[in-house]
Amino acid sequence: MSDTAATAPHPAVPRPPKRAPRSLRAWLTRNPVVLKELRSRMRGARAFVVLTVYLLLMSAFITLLYTVYLSSNASVYSRPDRMLLGKFVFGGVVGIEALLVCFITPAFTVGAIASERERQTYDLLRTTLLSERALVLGKLVSALSYVLLLLAAALPLQSLAFLLGGVAPEEVFIATLLLMATAFLFSAAGLFFSSLMRRTLGATILTYAFALLTTVGLPVLLFPVALLGPVFSYNTPPLFVQAALVYAFGLLIVMNPVATLIATELVLVNEQTVFYFTTTLYDPVTNNPVVLPLFSPWLPFTLFALAVGGVLVLLAILNVRRIEN
């Protein structure tokens, strides 16, 4: 082709752009695994029943919140009260979504590789030209797309909060980002354990152990750290110990999606900031104030989730070894 172009006396016909614009479907279905998984997942009534039940439960929850609110002394006509209800509705929806993302997302990927082994289709795939990366990423994308659908379907319910007021667009944005990052982390964990174990059962146990550790185990660990505060209050510890404690506490928070959501909201309300704030510590010796820089938890959590999730996906790709020894 380049030869004819070089020898042609007249200017060559402009080449079509290297990447022709593709439809979303074409882009998604270039990976055969995505195409197959989406076909199977959306087949029949199951996917739609799950979606409907999920939305019904969520609506019931909001109705309950609303009823409780009405039966209290608060008034819908009072602006501060209404804003509080808005915050509750928003917080409730995001809370349920967080639980869903933590405990249902892993179920979408936990069988990804292990069930191929169990069904003995794994050997068939390994003799085709399908790459390890396409297999693992295909499973990840198809699982995440269903989670995204669930999150998107709940958006109208979240938006009820706007009607009532009290919720800022930043909060919606951050909450969605955090949920997506969490979904990625737990899908990746499910994939990793699925690639590690021969059986889906083993992979399920390990994945849920991981999910429980990050969501419940870490808050339990937070207690001793929090308890150290009063211990030191009689005798102020050296500055570096104080700083270390603040950061250790922060680190534990940003490893937990639910704690991150709550802490981010607290930072937003108390510090009136989305990104960056400071806290002041006092040197016990000189009594000089020292300003400690801190990030709003959603930022480090998103980085943490993307990094850990990315590593888990990479490990899963490495585990899907083509040639047995």
Partner: peptide
């Protein structure tokens, strides 16, 4: 292989379509 690897929820043509895509 000496076993038949089946996917649930898949029609005959989808089964072939998937493996053809893998190639």
């Amino acid at each position: 292989p000496d076993f038949f690897g089946v996917y649930d929820d898949m029609t005959v043509w989808e089964y072939l379509d998937f493996f053809a895509a893998c190639y």
